[in-house]
Write a protein that binds this DNA or RNA. Structure first.
Lengths: 151, 151
DNA sequence: TTTTTAAACTAGAATAATTCTAATCTATTG
DNA sequence: CAATAGATTAGAATTATTCTAGTTTAAAAA
């Protein structure tokens, strides 16, 4: 896959994924060192998407050696979400997860293990929903199937 | 509607809804002054159910003149939830709502107003969900339809 | 009724997740 | 390369929730 070099920074910097770079530019977000590091962790080499909390991503990015503050992780996750690069979801009260799969899909949540799996929306049909009121539109439909070990 | 008088307390106390009292007893929860006050706000005179946050309920119970601490509100909401008298749900990251409707149902969320409406599950049919894995069972299915003003 | 006791309640401290602030830095533009 | 708008940061602040440990109370026993 093609790599580019980001110019304009003081010490010219490691190669980045071209698609990631393009994604940021399209979203009107400057491709800063921090955003690139976070985007790499979020989007590179995860063909099936991932679900990540702010704290977990913060851990990863620092483990990867990048200097990024927790505030920036939060800022970036929200900016990516606003730009349509991520989707925020809550399966357990208390913390948000960010989903790199922004296609129309739903979730299977294994309460015991905490495992969360995507289910393509086009495999699913939901009938009987009330008519969307005039002047409103459906922003999104979230389906979470919660599974537990059979008793 | 029939009322009972709770005995055993120091100053014999105001009449309470018999159904509420029975509900607590069935759940193995002592009908304390605080639980009765909270249960009254939650369950009495709300035929269509309600969605309430801990803070909001705390406000209501104190406005009603009862002395109940915030810790007790949280304890009670969780005990009621464990007893199947309430259902916890999250529509917005950051805070939990407690739903007095514990029947099988889903939600319509108006993002602009914050309004939340129940949709009976038996009006709805969901097809194409993946098979429940062996050894697991569906604990519950949450559907949240998020609506916003049409752009 | 009084006593006993486990359960429940409480204020306030503690924690967890997230947001804010205001100072510093840097990617882009001229 | 200088100017500047935008981005980053550490740490403080805020918000929602949980915990602690001392006090009160409902229910059971006497």
């Amino acid at each position: 896959m093609a790599k580019h070099v980001v110019s304009g920074s003081k010490r010219t910097v490691r190669a980045v994924n071209a698609a990631t770079l393009a994604r940021l530019r399209e979203a009107g977000l400057r491709p800063t060192r921090q955003r690139l590091a976070l985007a790499a962790l979020l989007f590179d080499g995860h063909p099936h998407g991932r679900h990540v909390s702010a704290e977990a991503l913060f851990g990863e990015v620092r483990a990867a050696g990048a200097k990024v503050s927790l505030a920036t992780v939060y800022n970036t996750l929200h900016q990516f979400t606003a730009a349509g690069l991520l989707r925020e979801l809550v399966v357990d009260p208390g913390t948000s997860l960010f989903d790199t799969n922004v296609g129309d899909h739903h979730h299977l949540y294994f309460e015991d293990s905490g495992d969360l799996r995507d289910v393509d929306a086009d495999r699913i049909e939901i009938k009987g929903l009330p008519a969307t009121p005039k002047g409103a539109e459906v922003a999104r439909v979230d389906v979470i199937v919660r599974l537990r070990r059979r008793s």
